[in-house]
Design a protein around this nucleic acid. Sequence first.
RNA 1: GCUCUGGUAGUGUAGUCCGGCCAAUCAUAUUGCCCUCUCGAGGCAAUGACCGGGGUUCAAAUCCCCGCCGGAGCACCA
Length: 462
Amino acid sequence: MRLAPNPNGPWHLGNARMPAVIGSYKEMYDGWMCCRFDDTDPETKRPDLDAYDGILDAIDYLGFEPDEVVRASDRVETYYEHARNLIDEGGAYACSCPQGEFSDLKNGGESCPHRDQDPETIHEEFDRMVAGEYDSGEMVLRVRTDIEHKNPALRDWVAFRMVDTPHPREAAAEYRCWPMLDFQSAVDDHLFEVTHIIRGIDLQDSAKRQGFLYDYFGWEYPEVTHWGRIEVDEYDVPLSTSSIKELVAEGELDGWDDPRAPTLASLERRGIRGDAVVEAMTELGVSTSSADLAMSSVYSANRERVDDGTDRAFLVRDGERVPVEGGPDEGHPPVHPEHEDRGTRDVPLGEAVLLEPADVPADGERVWLKGWGPVRNEDGTLVYTDESIDVVREGDVDVVHWVDAGENVPVRMRTMDGDIAGHAERGVAGYDVDDLLQFERVGFVRVDSTEGDEFVVYFTHR
RNA sequence: GCUCUGGUAGUGUAGUCCGGCCAAUCAUAUUGCCCUCUCGAGGCAAUGACCGGGGUUCAAAUCCCCGCCGGAGCACCA
């Protein structure tokens, strides 16, 4: 099998479907999989040099490793060779018709005058294409299919065209005559002995186009499956490399890993594990109808993976300062409620706490400061009541999270809906970048930066 | 317009090829209850679907026909 990405930018969630599905099949059947960069358009789909490694990193993040990595732009001579063979077989001809004219002829099912040239002339013209003697648009090499085929999309398609813009990769910068995807991909799939192709429905006519090539060469076409378009809820930003690129350039997004961007880099930064994304993707299956991916299924898969190993902590958002009277000077909530052996935390409590506004009890009402004890609001002061935990069990008193008003860690939590300022318990200062935490009653986060006077975390999900 | 292709609960999916075991599976979601010093986890329960209409048949999600509604291609993009 093969992954055939176009390296024109960092990957978004939609791109993850390719390695998720194909990589999973590869593992399931102990197959072989390569990553082949289909970078044969130096102009309209101009490759981004950083994207080659970026895509490999993304595949790694998802938990897969290609058995081989190749770039189509390194294999241009191979394509030329097959083009010459095809001309010998009578399967191709050079054509200098202007695009519009050819299109009109084609739609009418009529041949153009170049279709029946003799092989010598075609070879000569193709050699001149390879030598770069034509400019963009002057000459193409077409595959001779069936000019009266009932599906106009399959009639005499272009195999090679001229591109004036040099390829960004130095090794390929001299080529001017480039194969089209249908030709390049067809040749490579055969040469690499690909047995199964899984790709998007946008390429559903490709198999039929390439079938003509396989017939000329006497090859057997691989099994093909197509999946439909995928959309993701919860994001305002569309699942499109070019539009994300635009938003980043305009400064609407802080970068490719902005939490509002539906990119893999963003999910990784938020602390979502690659295999959770894979699980959600493979659940979508390979139906050709379009599908909405619910982010909740990614979150659910991720929560299942991280919940058990993630330490708990308190984070108070938009804290309201309330004085406290009496009680112990420290609280000891557990590091993880299901794992007593991991111990307890030490959360100091001085003369006042910070509570989320909605958690502040009304005058005369009680609340249980989690891991510390019960208090009653008496004229704006929380007075320790020294009651047993039974008051919570009886359902009369809510349990809330809190931090000391003086001794805490200011935190900036970045979410899809913007940044939230808060204060976390003292102990979170001991965590490092990439550590995961669950802020109780708030949600999971990944520690992103501990430098400076601000502790930055990325919100994962509840 | 021409050519493909598809329509099962909010979302995704199983079942469709080879009609009956499908008063339709599983997951997620939502709601309620239990448990819990988290609104997390765990447990229990509820909600909720075969695009429509004909036909064939003892029997149709499944086969046939006609509609309706999507998606894709018809590029010197991938």
